[in-house]
């Protein structure tokens, strides 16, 4: 068991991968709490696809793909914000327009390349073994920034998510914090692209947070648990992927999904099976109820 866990960590390329996925797990776990609480899963998925052209352009011009994705993410999040603010279109319609449009642009750009299929594959599914020192440094910096913003603006982000009318009545500029949150969200997505890939990053945002929500009613605890579950899924998933030779992104997401299902069934208070068992324990059998103890002794 120890060998099973330690063996992959011996390789330098795996050390990079582990560090990257642990950071991604924590950052997506924290950001994902607000994604799930605000019901913005679709937004998260859209954003993951929308940064695609930025990655492709960075790849084609030899720039850093994190920077490219970041620029694309900021443009798209501002675009979505602007369209849903100023027109009759609902938020998810605006998201749909930008998400598909940006993704198509990315595919158009990369399909002109000769190595089309291979490149597309590594973008969509991640290529965790190619994590460089610079990537790690950039991931850490972006991650620290995300965490700092979430911590500093925790009250604003919470109030805006929980009670928008109150937030507005107490002078919060809602669009400003919505925009801030979109930027945080896109940053979290961008640093996850290399490890889990475009298609599966949504799971890193939603699944650990959803699992944490099943386990607690306290926001602080939820954020901590979500980060922990994200990191744990990353660690175990990567290890399984190493030994079983399966795609790392898929392996990580499957571990996260398994943890979610376990919580869904067995969470202390909300689990399907746990609550059924508890109901059974409190259920009085009719034949016992016929002669309650106090009646028998009252003669």
């Amino acid at each position: 068991m120890i060998d099973w866990l330690v063996d992959p960590v011996r390789h330098t390329f795996m050390q990079h991968a582990y560090l990257a996925i642990l950071m991604v797990g924590v950052i997506c776990g924290v950001t994902g709490v607000f994604v799930t609480l605000r019901g913005l899963a679709f937004m998260g998925d859209a954003m993951a696809h929308a940064v695609f052209p930025g990655v492709v352009i960075a790849f084609l011009t030899g720039g850093n793909f994190l920077v490219g994705a970041l620029i694309a993410a900021v443009i798209v999040s501002l675009g979505i914000g602007a369209v849903s603010q100023s027109t009759r279109l609902s938020n998810d319609t605006a998201i749909g327009v930008f998400f598909a449009g940006a993704f198509a642009l990315g595919i158009a750009l990369i399909s002109a390349q000769r190595t089309y299929t291979r490149d597309l594959n590594s973008f969509l599914l991640g290529s965790i073994l190619g994590v460089s020192r610079e990537d790690l440094l950039l991931t850490a910096l972006v991650g620290l920034f995300v965490l700092a913003v979430v911590i500093l603006f925790r009250r604003e982000l919470t109030t805006v998510a929980f009670d928008r009318t109150f937030a507005r009545a107490t002078g919060l500029k809602l669009w400003r914090y919505d925009q801030l949150f979109l930027i945080i969200l896109s940053l979290a997505i961008v640093i996850s692209l290399q490890t889990v890939g475009n298609v599966l990053v949504l799971a890193m945002l939603v699944t650990p947070a959803a699992t944490a929500r099943l386990l607690t009613d306290r926001l602080k605890v939820m954020i901590g648990l979500s980060a922990l579950i994200g990191a744990l899924s990353g660690w175990i998933g990567l290890t399984i992927s190493y030994h079983a030779g399966i795609a790392s992104g898929a392996s990580i997401v499957l571990v996260a999904t398994t943890i979610f299902l376990v919580a869904f069934l067995f969470a202390p208070r909300t689990g399907i099976i746990t609550s059924t068992i508890r109901r059974r324990l409190h259920y009085h059998h009719p034949e016992q109820d016929t002669f309650p103890d106090d009646l028998q002794v009252s003669d």
Partner: peptide
Amino acid sequence: SSVDWTFPVS
């Protein structure tokens, strides 16, 4: 009615 009642706050 304008509040998310499932929100994890005490």
